[in-house]
Each structure stands twice: as C-alpha cells, then as structure tokens.
Amino acid sequence: MGMRSIAALTLHEAARRRIGLAAFIIGALFLSFHGTGLYLMVTGGPLRDMNGRIPPLILRQILTTLSLMGLYAANWLVVLMTVLTAVDTLSGEISSGTIQSLAAKPIRRWQLVMGKWAGYVVLITVFMLLLTGGVLIEDKLILGFAPNHIPAALAMMWLESLVLLAVTLRAGASLSTMTTGVVVLGMHILAFMGGWIEQFGALENSPTAVHVGITASLLMPTEAMWRKAASEFQGPIIGLAGSSPFGTTSVPSMGMVAYAAIYMLVALGSAVRRFSRRDL
C-alpha cells in the first residue's frame, strides 16, 4: 500500500511538474531531427547514387551505422533523463523536509525508497521505449532496415538505466542533490572512458589497456551495457571499427551483464539500507 502510494506520487509529480511533457517534447524533437537526417542521407547523397551498386554486406554496414547513431543518441538521452529526474528525489526531499510528513506515516522506509524506484522505472521504461521505438520505426520506414536482436539489445539499454537509477538513489540517500549528480554522471563518464580504452586496447592488442577498461566497467557497468546493446544490434558478423561508440572489438561478456544486474541490486539494497538508517 505504502509503496504503491509513493510510486503514484512520483508519477503524479512527473506529470504535474511537466517532466513528462518536457521529456515528450524533447523526444519528439529528437525523432523529428533523426527522421529528417535519415531521409536526407538516403535521398541526397552517395547512398542514392550508388544504390544497387553497393555490395550487400557494405550496405548493411552503412545502414547499421546509421541506425546505431540514432540509438546511441537515444541512449544518451535516456541516461541523462534517468539521472536528472531522479537526482533530487531523496536528497531534495530530505533537505527541504518534505520527506518528514511522508516518513512519519505508517509506511516503512524501504517502501519509500522502493516506491520512488518503481515510479522512476515506469518513467524511464516508457521514455526509453518511446525513443528507441521511434528510432527503430524511422529506420524501418526510411532505410527499410532493422538492426538485429532488438529485444536483447533494448534489455541491455534498460539495464544500463536501471543501474544508473539505483546508483542515483544510493548517492541521493547520503549526499546532497548537487553532489549526487556530480558523482553519478562522473562515474558514468568514467565508464565511458573505460569503454574507449578497452576498445583501443583490443584494437592494438594491448591486454593491459583492455584490463584498465574492464576495471572501469566494474566500477560502473553502465557504458558496458550500451556496448553490449550495440553488439547485439550489429549481430555477430559485422564488427565495426574499434574506435567508435559502437565498436565491438571487445564485447562485454554475459558475465559483465550478470555483474551489472547484481551491481544494480546491490546499489538498490544499499540505498534502502542507508535511507532506512539515516535521520530525517
């Protein structure tokens, strides 16, 4: 009961404070530009001139890259939306004191945290599905192309956001809003750097660089989930150049996926534990 009320309150807040509307407008703008860009590329460039003369494998590679560019941008939007919307849900309510009248009710602290979590999971999931769904539909309509393994790849992107949400809640249970934002986005950028180092390492045959990259992913397994998603989208045959955000010269293992899932659960458990033990 308590958890459901808090989840409903979280969704109500997103609607009332026009977070949902803002996200929808940004998403719609994003998809308009993405669709326009795709259309111009298909109709105006070498892709049109060479149509029919490009070997199928190369064509598929070009289309995959175009599709991944859109999905990559969508992924960044989801990442930022996750962190920016959830960043003050605990810390902000603690510092303003609004949490007091909630926590004095007959609900447990864990219900407060998990209620908020559930609310944000709904928001993030809907936002992600709208954006990625939009990109994939535009790919199909304009390029006549669909990447591989869509459900598995989307699941990886979803897991990335769930990890970010859990870390955001964990940080927000202890730190101020500003510090929470700095820590979570900082960790994500760290993971992002780690991903590049790992790709270069694999390309240059440097196991040390690969290990450095994997270490960064162990600290924050978010970017690794995007790269796993990218490799799923591309399928087993086409590995693109290593030095791009879609590089799959070193693909995160299923072990890393399991690690990310456990990481998320531990972060969430730790958020609940920290919030349950702190003074409000």
Binding site: L9, E13, S96, G97, T98, Q100, S101, A104, K105, P106
Partner: peptide, 15 residues
C-alpha cells in the same frame, strides 16, 4: 502505531 498518530512538522514543507 503511526497510523494512530498525527504530526505537523515544524517547517510544514509539503509537495
């Protein structure tokens, strides 16, 4: 027991 208690916080900050 909190179901039987009412509370007006000092700074009455609400949503």
């Amino acid at each position: 027991v909190r179901a039987r208690i009412g509370f007006l916080p000092e700074h009455f900050r609400f949503h």
